[in-house]
Design a protein around this nucleic acid. Structure first.
Lengths: 153, 153
DNA sequence: GTATATGCAAACTGTTTGCATTTAC
DNA sequence: GTAAATGCAAACAGTTTGCATATAC
């Protein structure tokens, strides 16, 4: 799951926008590319410091933000600790609610449809079989434009 | 999407575990129940303080954690700001990678299968049609036990 | 040479914790 | 009366920012 072109692409963008390819950025990109473990900023920092102990954590954050703004990396959140959480009441019937997040107005819309549940069940089975693991839960987060924002555009 | 029984259920559990139903807890539960906006702890705090300005933020956190531990509320994370992020390289072909999160060893396993993509496509269409919105992206996070942890148990 | 990045320390946000006081049972 | 919950302040983790210094172009 590595993309040998990442550093090159970034260098191009950098050039196009009057930015500069520094040793730190190159290092961070290398580490990012070499890693398939979804590192957090801190983990990436620790890895990169093995090569350059003088690297600063804020440089890592600045670089990651820069990369994210330009679509080179995408943030994911898996762990429930230390995260900015939203709390929903849990459904008494144990049924599942999934979410749609409008990227324009930030609205969150819940949905749950039997057909969706059925399809998800197939996916869960598929993945469980393929990887030999046990799937207990499936969280689906769709994103796009909600009805209101679609109407406005 | 409200469950009138929430406060009652919590009271029962509380009783069963030697806990106490306080005015603060009742207030937090009421606010949680009345709200369909997926409030964060801070938002919930702000809402609840309208009824009881002496309510403390740490009480809100403690109550939410208590509720979460007992399965009464479930945390969700939607916003990319202020969250504990994991960074992945974005795939150049725009293809999709989904994730499996082992709740025991915290390992994250990527997967992407054409069948899954196909099923997700159906879900996206279904939801888009049902709600009249535009779905640009679908993030699927499965969780359970990974192969290693299954083997160990 | 100049604009851009860096390192460092200090600030900031969201969350947790220790402890004395209050309160539900 | 006693164990459990609260309020408060202080600590904590992850992230951002201001500023002087260094460096890519």
């Amino acid at each position: 799951m590595t993309f040998p072109l990442l550093t090159d692409q970034v260098t191009q963008t950098l050039r196009a926008q009057g930015g500069r390819m520094t040793a730190q950025r190159r290092l961070i990109l290398d580490v990012l590319q070499a890693s398939d473990s979804h590192p957090t900023a801190e983990e990436l920092y620790a890895l990169a410091r093995q090569s350059d102990p003088s690297l600063n954590l804020s440089t890592v954050y600045r670089t990651l933000n820069w990369l994210e703004e330009r679509g080179f990396v995408s943030p994911r959140r898996f762990d429930d600790n230390h995260a900015h959480k939203h709390f929903d009441p849990v459904q008494p019937d144990g049924g599942h609610v999934h979410h749609f997040h409008c990227r324009k107005c930030d609205r969150v819309i819940e949905f749950s449809a039997p057909q969706v549940e059925l399809l998800l069940e197939q996916i869960r089975g598929e993945i469980a079989r393929q990887h030999g693991l046990r799937v207990d839960d499936a969280a689906l987060v769709l994103s796009g434009l909600c009805m209101d924002c679609v109407a406005k555009s």
